[in-house]
Amino acid sequence: MKIEGTHTFNAPRNVVWPMLLDPQVLANVMPGCEKLEKVGENDYTGVLKIRVGPVQGTFNGKVTLNNLTPPESYEMVVDGKGPAGFVKGNGRLRLEENGDTTTMHYEGDVQVGGRIASVGQRLLDTSARAIIRQSLEGLDQQVNARMQAQNAPTSSADTTDTPPPLAAAPTQTEFALGVAKNFLEELIPEEQRSDLMTKGLVLLGTLLLIRLLGNWWANRIAHKVARILKESA
């Protein structure tokens, strides 16, 4: 699976860069991230809980950063595994400063194996994109909070040492909604969305009704067949 994209933060590069190396920040913005710890100069370990379609799994992983060029770029190698399978990947990240904003370019190559690949295949790409999008949204909030903290008129010098308030990580439900949202966005052009949503709801209701009626009919038919068989036997 290839991952690629750009994202623009409303902050200069020297604000964004340290946040991208801060395990506490990253753990907070990544949906499903239960733990991320710095264990060496450029090494991190963590626990990530992922849900892809019907498969849910906890992954224990190791992240190593290479070729750090502050405040511009780094490469990373991810190696995670758990009962639901494994994730292996490498990626590159580059920050480009444009005045007050910073554009992040990221790309990566991810290999996924095990149950999560064989059963969750159809939802894998969308789930990965949802994780990235939500992480970036979270990061945006953190960046904005930090910028506000910096820009606020301060009287005491130690303000910068106080960590800015952390935005809460999305819950499982929020993440699932995010996946659904991604699906919708990919399936339906924006201008048709509200119309289709209405139709979708009507359709959903109809399907439910058919399902219920269908069960009732299936039961009736089964009984009838059984009776005929009994009579013919």
């Binding site: 379609g53 290999q111 194996g113 149950r115 690949a117 064989s118 059963v119 295949q121 159809r122």
Partner: peptide, 12 residues
């Protein structure tokens, strides 16, 4: 190409 079975369920 890594030998992952991509069709491991009746959804796929």
């Amino acid at each position: 190409e890594n030998g992952q079975l991509l069709t491991g369920s009746l959804m796929d």
